[in-house]
Design a protein around this nucleic acid. Structure first.
Length: 283
DNA sequence: CGGCAAACCTGCGAGC
DNA sequence: TGCTCGCAGGTTTGCC
């Protein structure tokens, strides 16, 4: 899926289309996503005005004029696209359409249906089961080396695994954890609790830099992600390690020239997921 | 609590 | 051509 930068890119793309608009029609073609879409979702949204479009972790948050908030997760393969009137005929994975009073449609497409949609009272938002317990926003002012070190303190699990735990820091996924660890020069296999002090500062700064650079590039387009306007993100061209097993490490160029056989990007499975790293540069 | 595998679902590319 | 296998940006659940 979309990790934080992709969700943020989608949010920014949807803002000019949805913010301040009234929903004149909401079509749900199938309700069985990761969890069922709430009953009467369409009826409850129809006629409502969207007063704001936010994001928490990998969730899009649509604030409605009746005090309700839609929590929308894109799962692994979810996409939002914008269509002028009339929208094209729906495909088999086009599950939800939001039709606004301008005639434009925002369409949710999700082949794997790992995405989810829920509706909650804005006053209860922070206590929603999906949001309660999430760690700090890595781009917010509550996140720094000290906060990260505190969240990792005592953890025996590998650093990579800990950073994928949304309770430690919210919004990172497999790509950006790999990239952040590379940039910070930290091994994915290091015990999480050993990251303190300057190492923690370095890691927090790396996370922020990778996420900001990715957002500036419109996210990463591997299989499914597109910006809401249909354009591809292009941060995947800037990956240092993700998906680059066997290639030379961009941080060890000189090593390749000297014939160091250790140099290069390696893939290893960690917690059932691919980890890409350079064992020379990351300790 | 920690760690890990499996589960949810579809699509795609590689290899035979 | 057609099949099987492994893999994919996430998150939860259940088991030891």
């Amino acid at each position: 899926m979309p990790e934080l930068p992709e969700v943020e890119t989608v949010r920014r793309g949807l803002c000019p289309v949805l913010e301040g608009r009234t929903l004149v029609q909401v079509v749900t073609r199938r309700l069985d996503l990761r969890w069922p879409i709430p009953a009467n979702f369409g009826e409850r949204l129809t006629g409502r005005r969207i007063i704001g479009l936010g994001r928490r972790s990998k969730y899009l948050l649509l604030s409605l004029d009746d005090g309700m908030v839609v929590l929308w997760h894109l799962g692994m393969s979810g996409r939002m696209t914008i269509h002028d009137e009339p929208p094209p005929p729906p495909g088999p994975h086009d599950h939800v359409d939001l039709v606004t009073d301008t005639g434009r449609t925002v369409r949710f497409t999700d082949p794997r249906r790992f995405g989810s949609i829920d509706l909650t009272d804005a006053l209860l938002l922070e206590n929603h089961p999906r949001l309660a317990g999430l760690g700090p926003e890595p781009l917010g002012n509550q996140f720094d080396g000290a906060a990260l070190a505190a969240a990792l303190a005592g953890r025996q699990s590998p650093l990579k695994t800990a950073l994928l735990d949304q309770r430690v820091v919210a919004g990172l996924g497999n790509i950006y954890v790999c990239e952040s660890l590379f940039l910070a020069g930290l091994s994915p296999f290091r015990r999480a609790g050993t990251v303190v002090g300057r190492r923690a500062e370095r890691l927090a700064a790396a996370i922020r830099q990778v996420l900001n650079d990715a957002i500036a590039a419109g996210g990463s387009s591997l299989r499914d992600h597109r910006q809401a306007n249909g354009e591809l993100g292009y941060f995947q061209h800037h990956f240092a390690v993700y998906g680059r097993a066997g290639e030379a490490c961009p941080g060890c160029n000189c090593a390749a020239a000297t014939g160091d056989r250790q140099a290069g990007i390696t893939r290893r499975v960690q917690g059932g997921r691919s980890t890409f790293f350079c064992s020379r540069r990351q300790r």
